[in-house]
């Protein structure tokens, strides 16, 4: 079996989430990686161990990984593959179902475990149940969660690079711009430690209380939807059913009540710490270590003590 894995790029780098997709792909068969954009990205991809071949699409049409041209490209390549795998990321979730529809396949999103070539485990109902599903489709189209597969190493391989041509983009969908938050912190999906704040942070200013703590821990910063909706932080910080799914070694939830939709995004973290002034907050039911009290007193003390 040969598996096509889409490697996404962002700001000139291959995304961490795609490295996890490579690991998932290797479990299924020989991996060929599809890379759009600059040639240097294809060269980076060729070094990832376990990739047998890199398909490089350098055309402008797919440079921004828009779903319409990218799905067409994937479909044009699909004939050779038993499985098409992408990360369960914004790009993967945008393109994989479109490509699947064109292939008359029911996609299998958010795979957390691979049981066999046709049987996969995926969460439903915000992770309150895990469904094992078997696909009857001839080809399988999957998106996989990066929290459940180790990232493939970046170095050690030496794959052949071949170019593939995308059909010129139609004008019906046009890329206009992208605004990426520039931060020196690690990506949420791959961070070892995450410090996450909720409505309890009270304001944009208040949320900054977390910065020194995250600095000390080398942590990524996450947030609940309430914190995002209240404008304390941008949307890409959101952890949960409809935000990012994370599973770091250490997740510190601060001023977050622990709604099911938030837990859906972080309850597979190895160690969970909850800091909340309400001893009854549901977050304490999933926390390994809970500390009840005012976060504006506790967070500076904790930062100091580390």
């Amino acid at each position: 079996m040969t598996v096509l894995v889409l490697l996404e790029n962002e700001a000139g780098q291959i995304r961490q989430a795609s490295l996890a997709a490579v690991t998932a792909g290797i479990k299924l068969g020989e991996v060929h990686a599809l890379v759009c954009g600059d040639k240097t990205l294809a060269e980076t991809a060729a070094k990832i161990p376990g990739i047998a071949k890199v398909l490089h699409a350098g055309d402008e049409a797919v440079a921004h990984e828009l779903a319409e041209p990218l799905a067409d490209l994937i479909v044009s390549l699909a004939g050779d593959y038993s499985h098409i795998v992408t990360a369960a990321s914004a790009i993967g979730k945008n393109v994989a179902p479109r490509a699947a529809a064109l292939l008359d396949v029911q996609p299998i999103p958010d795979v957390i475990a691979i049981e066999s070539a046709d049987t996969f485990v995926r969460p439903i109902y915000a992770g309150n149940a895990l469904a094992t599903v078997r696909s009857a489709d001839a080809k399988k189209v999957l998106t996989v969660r990066s929290a459940n597969f180790d990232a493939a190493p970046a170095e050690g391989g030496n794959a052949e690079i071949i170019s593939v041509a995308a059909t010129p983009a139609s004008d019906t969908s046009r890329f206009v711009s992208v605004a990426l938050s520039d931060s020196d912190r690690p990506e949420l999906e791959s961070a070892r430690v995450i410090v996450s704040g909720g409505r309890g942070m009270q304001s944009e200013e208040g949320f900054k209380t977390l910065d020194p703590l995250a600095d000390k821990l080398g942590a990524a910063i996450g947030a609940s939807r309430a914190a995002v909706d209240s404008g304390y932080v941008p949307n890409e910080y959101q952890v949960g059913q409809t935000g990012k799914i994370v599973a770091p070694e250490l997740y510190i939830a601060i001023g977050i009540s622990g709604a099911i939709q938030h837990l859906a995004g972080m309850k597979d973290s190895r160690i969970i710490v909850a800091i909340n002034k309400d001893a009854e907050a549901p977050i304490f039911q999933v926390a390994d270590y809970g500390l009840v009290g005012d976060l504006f007193e506790i967070v500076p003390q904790l930062t100091e003590a580390l």
């Binding site: 149940a129 895990l130 599903v133 809970g290």
Partner: peptide, 28 residues
């Protein structure tokens, strides 16, 4: 007609109950 057959549906693993710590020092 469905393409996916549900083989089984299971509860996710429960997290075991944690503890409440009394101070920042104890947490660290």
């Amino acid at each position: 007609a469905p393409r996916l057959t549900v083989v089984s549906v299971a509860e996710p693993a429960e997290r075991k109950a944690g503890i409440t710590v009394g101070s920042v020092a104890e947490l660290v």
